[in-house]
Simulated scan of single mutants.
Amino acid sequence: MEELEVKSSTHEYKIMIGEGIRYTLHQYIPKKYSSILIITDDKVAKLHLDAVKESLANEKVYESIIPAGEQSKSIDVFYRLHTDAIQYGLDRKSLVVALGGGVVGDLAGFVAATYMRGIDFIQVPTTILAHDSSVGGKVAINHEFGKNMIGNFYSPVAVIYDVETLSTLSDREIRSGYAEIIKEALISDETTFEQLMNLRLNEISNDELKEQLSFGIKVKAKIVEEDEKESGVRKYLNLGHTLGHAIEAELSYGRLTHGEAVAIGLLFALYVSNKEFKADLPLESLLTWFKYNDYPLNISDCKVEKLVETMKSDKKATNKKIQMVLLEEIGKPTVKDLDDEVIDSYLQSFMEKVIK
């Protein structure tokens, strides 16, 4: 088992990465709690809930199961989970366990952050994508006008990552997760990016997967420690997300996974970077890799003007200017404010020439 440590502004917490550790979850819970609420979705519950409950057999354990999918990151589901917590009698010495992917982690973490002004929670990720979202303490729900617009910075007390749970992932979930790993390589390490470009996602070994997950978590943890609340370098983790989030919102959350939308956003970020900095970033190589691994890249249902408006309402926007993370070269990210007209022009040509 691999063990990493992250220092947040309020406390240090450990990230455990191993095989089968969901069966011994009680060993990694940092202290005794009065009760535990496991929040999971209906797909993950069928696969892993019983094992986690059995690992906590000596505790007072409750469960809340939500529908799988991005639509559950809503104010209604958030409120319902608070109702569950109150009816179960959770107090300030209770614990929330987020068992699932990024949706469950974001939602359950925000419930923990706001219940009785904040109780402890742990992340138990079950997707590749959640290697990114489970670390760093960003918790949130969506608003119809934007993704993750209602939320907080609230770090878990532990992240317990059982990579055995990844064996049940669909091809779509694997694609989604690897978009974030590619993002982490683009902002930090050209060698790893080139290695990833040689992967076929349906042929990844367990050892390769663990190595790449560990790489991604270390990149995220290092940046989060340096800039927990996104006043500086943490913004670099948003590479590909400005357009990605807009696509998700315009397609009503669910038609594309988060990672599939981010994949298109990464291509756009490289396209704009090459234009803005006269750079020579590997746009064609990445496009070929996405196609080779069956990423859905068609967003013809999205209107450019609507995407631009949604990008302007993104929480990273300043003074209604669109703020994009770009690359001067691989491993050298930067942030640039761009006018509507510039983004509009780039989007038009990107959709006509790159992902046509």
Results as ranks from 00 to 15, higher is better:
Phe153Lys: 11
Phe153Val: 10
Ser155Trp: 05
Ser155Glu: 14
Ser155Val: 03
Ser155His: 15
Ser155Ile: 04
Val157Met: 07
Val159Asn: 08
Val159Gln: 07
Ile160Pro: 05
Asp162Ile: 06
Asp162Thr: 05
Glu164Pro: 08
Thr165Gln: 08
Ser167Leu: 13
Ser167Ile: 11
Thr168Glu: 10
Thr168His: 10
Leu169Ala: 07
Leu169Pro: 06
Ser170Cys: 02
Asp171Thr: 12
Asp171His: 12
Asp171Phe: 11
Asp171Met: 11
Arg172Ala: 02
Arg172Leu: 03
Arg172Pro: 00
Arg172Glu: 10
Glu173Tyr: 10
Ile174His: 00
Ile174Pro: 04
Arg175Lys: 12
Arg175Ala: 05
Arg175Glu: 02
Ser176Val: 03
Gly177Ile: 06
Gly177His: 01
Tyr178Glu: 02
Glu180Ala: 00
Glu180Ser: 00
Glu180Asn: 01
Ile181Phe: 05
Ile181Asp: 06
Ile181Trp: 05
Ile182Cys: 08
Lys183Tyr: 07
Glu184His: 15
Glu184Asn: 15
Ala185Arg: 00
Leu186Arg: 00
Ile187Ala: 06
Ser188Pro: 04
Ser188Phe: 04
Glu190Gly: 04
Glu190Val: 12
Thr191Val: 14
Thr191Trp: 07
Thr191Asn: 13
Phe193Val: 00
Phe193Ile: 00
Glu194Ser: 01
Leu196Asn: 03
Met197Arg: 03
Met197Glu: 09
Leu199Thr: 08
Leu199Ser: 09
Arg200His: 15
Arg200Thr: 14
Leu201Gln: 03
Leu201Gly: 01
Leu201Cys: 06
Leu201Ser: 01
Asn202Phe: 11
Glu203Tyr: 13
Ile204Val: 15
Ile204Gln: 11
Ile204Gly: 04
Asn206His: 15
Asp207Glu: 15
Asp207Asn: 13
Asp207Ile: 15
Leu209Ser: 13
